[in-house]
């Protein structure tokens, strides 16, 4: 009611009717936004998984998002061999097997779209029993039975995609359980060599015990530099680190804050100068 009194008072001083009205409009428009609940589409991920991971996914409570490796999954994608197709009036149910388990995939029939799809797809390989297919969809639970509601299910043309998918699912699984790879030369990963790094940073990484898996790649780089670079007991300043690592200063500051939060480094002369907390 305050603004109304203001408006009246302004008009009463004379010849300000238009401006007063404008003021009222502004106040009104400030009140209107902010009430609508935002849907968190930003959290949506598309995660490559194996069928075993789908079957093992945790659901903290009914209607909650499923969790794999402790992180929520929304959209998933996987590759499997079609074991059975059953066409119903409202949906087609495929039973897919990728060697790690079997899961049902339901695709709802869109009566408008199917006729168009059938005509265009006649030349391409079709979804048939024992054929391999890639599925994009969302994990659902219904009557304690899990199925995947498919947005897209399409036949595989290049069988190397099966191998590619399984390796991708492994990489993502390791990313969530052990943190990002600690060096960029991931070619060594084929030999299982996630552990060893090349160059001078390698020694520092394992010198004082392994770093927490949750650290970002930037934080690892900053930590390794702080551990190995020559410095006074004041440590290194964020901008010096940024120059040496060729990283944006903002990223270095964020990485440093993370490391401080983890208790791995501490601030010295100011809040952006750090030294390693060596125990």
């Amino acid at each position: 009611m305050d603004y109304q009194q203001n408006t009246y008072s302004m008009t009463s001083y004379g010849a300000q009717g238009g401006a007063g009205g404008g003021g009222f409009m502004n106040t009104g428009s400030q009140n209107s936004p902010g009430s609508g609940a935002k849907q968190q589409y930003g959290k949506d991920t598309l995660r490559p998984v194996t069928i075993k991971q789908i079957l093992d996914a945790q659901q903290p409570h009914p209607d909650a998002e499923f969790k794999v490796d402790g992180s929520e999954i929304t959209q998933v994608t996987f590759v499997g061999q079609i074991r059975n197709i059953s066409t119903q009036t409202t949906n087609v149910t495929y039973k897919l097997d990728d060697g790690t388990g079997t899961v049902e995939v339901k695709q709802w029939i869109d009566s408008d779209a199917t006729s168009a799809m059938d005509t265009t797809d006649s030349s391409k390989p079709k979804l048939a029993e024992n054929a391999y297919a890639r599925v994009f969809g969302r994990l659902k639970a219904f009557n304690n039975k899990r199925h995947v509601g498919a947005h897209v299910i399409k036949p595989i043309n290049d069988y190397n995609e099966i191998q590619c998918h399984l390796l991708e699912a492994t990489v993502v699984h390791l990313h969530f359980t052990r943190g990002p790879p600690q060096s960029l030369n991931k070619e060594g990963a084929a030999n299982g060599a996630y552990g060893r790094q090349d160059g001078g940073a390698a020694g520092g990484d394992y010198g004082g015990g392994p770093l927490p898996n949750t650290l970002s790649g930037a934080a690892r780089k900053v930590y390794n530099l702080l551990k190995t670079a020559p410095q006074t007991n004041e440590g290194l300043q964020a901008q010096v680190i940024a120059v040496q690592l060729n990283m944006p200063t903002a990223d270095v500051v964020k990485a440093g804050d993370d490391l401080v939060g983890q208790g791995l480094i501490y601030t010295t002369v100011d809040e952006h100068t750090w030294a390693v907390l060596d125990v």
Partner: peptide, 15 residues
């Protein structure tokens, strides 16, 4: 590589 990975990280592939 897949066979190696599936047996090394069997938690997501096989019981």
């Amino acid at each position: 590589a897949v066979v190696d990975a599936t047996h090394r990280y069997k938690e997501i592939f096989y019981g």
